[in-house]
Amino acid sequence: MTAVTMLVNGKSVTADVEPRTLLVQFIRDHQQLTGTHVGCDTSQCGACVVHVDGKAIKSCTTLALSCDGAQVTTIEGVGTETDLHPMQAAFREHHGLQCGFCTPGMIMTSIDIVRRKGTNLDEATIRAELEGNICRCTGYHNIVKAVAAGAQAMGATTKQAAE
């Protein structure tokens, strides 16, 4: 067992883990943060996407020990039930989901898209950027609408905060 310490959703956590522990196992099994999902377990589907040091990665294809000292943000860290992140609110408003299994990963990826591509996203950009996230329910149309609206809302929030 090896000790690992990281900042998960702003809280410093330490645990002894086997070196083969994946980041997603650390998040779900050790931290009981079960919003991050395991879908394919082969880095295709994106249900496990979290942010490590601000960047979206697939936590099923990352060792927990590689994240020693890192800042990790999961879906639980972006908003609360009473104060949703603008991207979460947009997914609800536009019904960007059916079963909801892929949604945490979709939202974490979408926030990362805004970080890299800005708040005005066209449909082609959104579809290309969602390459690493699979939804088996929706056919993506409402997800694409939700990401565009969520990105706009994030822009508005940033603007408000600056004023």
Partner: peptide
């Protein structure tokens, strides 16, 4: 290469 998340790693 791959997808955005893979490109971050």
């Amino acid at each position: 290469i791959g997808d955005p998340q893979v490109r971050h790693k």
